[in-house]
Structures are given as structure tokens and as C-alpha cells.
């Protein structure tokens, strides 16, 4: 599995997203521009300029028509993928830490930072899927997180719930129409922030990555913890692989937390766990800083990781990856066929 090294950013990566077809990768970093890449060969398709602060987050709509990005310049921007035109800019009093489209691309949510007397908000906008159309200024919904600030959030299946991960290690389930809090469950260690939340393909369950050195698989319907993946280092990101029942966790000791950081103790590796059995099955080395983000190709062919070192590494899985099966899995497949 030889990785493709995407050396387009000058500073630490913050988020990577594949489009639905798995042919494009969008990456954002603290260096103020968004990069789009061909996933199969790592060629750069283009960049999106306009933000004037570190970009924390990016997401692409299901038809790869528009991307949204959130930045420390206190804006969410909507871009036309093809022309790189900035379609819309929404301004906020504080930085935007997370954006995400709903599964049908008609809604966009953003999570704003708690700072300077402003509480953390989850805001929702209705999106007109036509890039030529005027986008609304009106917020469809605002959820104020007064208990513990929201760090990550996303839309569940059928746009029914908004699920948010909090700084105190809990997850919340909100009604996506009314913004009403339905449930809040502490699933991670108290006051260890949840730093990533990614969905499976049909958005019925999600994985959280937490600084408490564990990742958890949680059902969107009732927030039951289905699986737990313990790691030996604080995590920054976690993703669920389609096609194979794995999850990929990324993290590592932050450079500021260690006095003498070598690749060895930093644990700058992507870790693969079996989604169902919770066993660690492998690690991929390469980064020389902590992994800030991992993303899985929705078609299941590859995955990409972005590190504090400023590189994106795209790994296309080889035959061994697809052939690997536990005995009981093979048994099940044989029985089904």
C-alpha cells in the first residue's frame, strides 16, 4: 500500500473530505485555502481562495456541486466546485469549527466556537442546490449550547436529528426541525472533548473520536454505544470504512504535550480496528506529526489522512486488505452465498 503524498498545504491539516463518488478529495488546513485533488493519482484539481483565517472544516454536497467551508475568520463560505466561485458568505461573531451538509444537500449546519462572551451555536441554513441561485441569509435554526460547547455536529438519516459532540465528552441528540434537545448522554470520560464525528453511509450510526484515547460507535436513533475502540493515544479523528467492517482512528501526542517527540512515542499512526470485534488489526505509519483528520473513500477503495505535518497521505487499499477476513466472517459469507 504505497501512499500518494499530497504536499499542497503549508500548515497543519484540519479536515479532509471525499466526495460521494470518491474521485475527489477536499482538504483544508490552517493555511487559509481549500485544495481539491483527484483521489486516484493525487493531482491537484484546484484551490479555493477567499478565507482570511485558518480553515477548520470543509464539506461537499452529495452531487459535488458545492462545497462549504468554515474558518477562524468567523465565516462559513459556500463555493462552486467547478468554478471556485465564492457563492455565499455567512458571517458570525466567532470562528466556525464544523460544517456539514445533510444527506440530500438541502441543509447546511455550522458549529460556532464559544468565545468572547458568545456561546457555542449550531446554526442551520436551507441550501438551494442550484449554484446559480441566490442563497438565503436567514437561519433556518439556531441551537444554543449553554451546557457544554459543541465541538462537532451532523445531520442524521432523513434529516431527522442533529447529533452534536461536546467538549465535556457527551453527545446530544436534537430534533433537526425544532432544535429541541431530545437527549444528552455522557459517553466519553468527563471533560475529555469529542473532536470528531463521522457517519456511516446511511447515517444511522456514527463514530466519535475523543481525547480520552477512545473512539465509540453510537446509534443515531437512541445514542446507545454500540462499540468502543480503545487506543493508547489521544484521538483527533475517526472514520468508518465502507465495504469492509473496519474503522480508522487517527491521533497522536500533540507536539506541545511531549518534550522530546520522536515518531516512536508520538504514535503518529493510523490505526485500523475491526468495527464489530473491536480488535486492532493494523497500523499505517508515515506522518511525522499527529494525525488531525482521517477520511474514508465512500466507494471503499482508499482512505486519506491529514497530519499536523502539513501532508495529506492517500492510501489505495491493496488486495490483501480486501481479502482479509476473520474466520467467522468468511463462514457467514459462505453461508449467505
Amino acid at each position: 500500500m504505497r501512499p500518494i503524498l499530497l504536499a499542497g498545504h503549508e500548515r497543519a491539516l484540519t479536515q479532509i473530505r471525499y466526495n460521494l463518488d470518491g474521485d475527489l478529495i477536499f482538504s483544508v488546513a490552517k493555511d487559509q485555502h481549500i485544495c481539491a485533488w483527484y483521489s486516484h493519482n493525487g493531482e491537484r484539481l484546484g484551490t479555493y481562495h477567499g478565507h482570511v483565517g485558518a480553515i477548520w472544516t470543509v464539506d461537499v454536497d452529495p452531487t459535488t456541486t458545492m462545497i462549504a467551508s468554515g474558518s477562524a475568520d468567523n465565516t462559513i463560505r459556500l463555493w462552486d466546485v467547478k468554478s471556485a466561485k465564492n457563492l455565499k458568505t455567512w458571517e458570525f461573531p466567532t470562528a466556525v469549527k464544523r460544517v456539514e451538509f445533510s444527506e440530500d444537500g438541502t441543509k447546511l449546519l455550522g458549529v460556532t466556537e464559544k468565545r468572547m462572551g458568545y456561546l457555542s451555536n449550531i446554526v442551520v441554513f436551507d441550501i438551494n442546490p442550484d449554484p446559480a441561485a441566490e442563497q438565503t441569509d436567514e437561519r433556518a435554526l439556531t441551537i444554543v449550547c449553554d451546557e457544554s460547547k459543541a465541538t462537532v455536529a451532523g445531520f442524521s438519516y432523513l434529516n431527522r436529528y442533529i447529533i452534536a459532540g461536546h467538549e465535556d465528552g457527551s453527545v446530544s441528540q436534537y430534533d433537526a426541525k425544532t432544535g429541541e434537545l431530545i437527549d444528552n448522554i455522557p459517553i466519553h470520560e468527563l471533560n475529555q472533548p469529542i473532536v470528531d464525528l463521522q457517519w456511516n453511509a446511511d447515517r444511522t450510526y456514527f463514530i466519535t473520536a475523543c481525547k480520552d484515547k477512545s473512539a465509540k460507535l453510537v446509534a443515531a436513533r437512541d445514542l446507545t454505544v454500540l462499540k468502543t475502540y480503545p487506543a493508547d493515544t489521544p484521538l483527533n479523528s475517526a472514520t468508518i470504512t465502507p465495504k469492509k467492517d473496519f474503522v480508522i482512528l487517527g491521533g497522536g501526542q500533540a507536539a506541545m504535550d511531549v518534550t522530546r517527540t520522536s515518531a516512536r512515542q508520538g504514535k503518529f499512526e493510523a490505526r485500523f480496528y475491526h468495527k464489530v470485534f473491536e480488535d486492532e488489526i493494523g497500523r499505517v505509519r508515515g506522518h511525522f506529526g499527529p494525525l488531525n483528520t482521517v477520511a474514508a473513500d465512500p466507494t471503499g477503495k482508499s482512505y486519506a489522512s491529514g497530519g499536523e505535518d502539513g501532508y495529506v497521505r492517500v492510501h489505495h487499499f491493496d488486495k490483501g486488505y480486501f481479502d482479509f477476513l476473520y474466520e467467522v466472517e468468511r463462514e457467514r459469507i459462505n453461508r449467505m452465498s
Binding site: 446511511d202 444511522t204 446509534a219 468495527k275 464489530v276 470485534f277 474466520e327 466472517e329 457467514r332
Partner: peptide
Amino acid sequence: VVEARRHLLNEWYEWRESMEAEL
């Protein structure tokens, strides 16, 4: 161990099937 895994796998697919059906 194998028995426990078999159990886990069945449990998981049962849950997935019910979830998919519901969806």
C-alpha cells in the same frame, strides 16, 4: 473466542438489518 466473535457478528448484522428495514 470464535464463539464470542460469531455472536458479536450476528448481533451486529441483526441490528443493521433491523435498522435498514426501519429506515
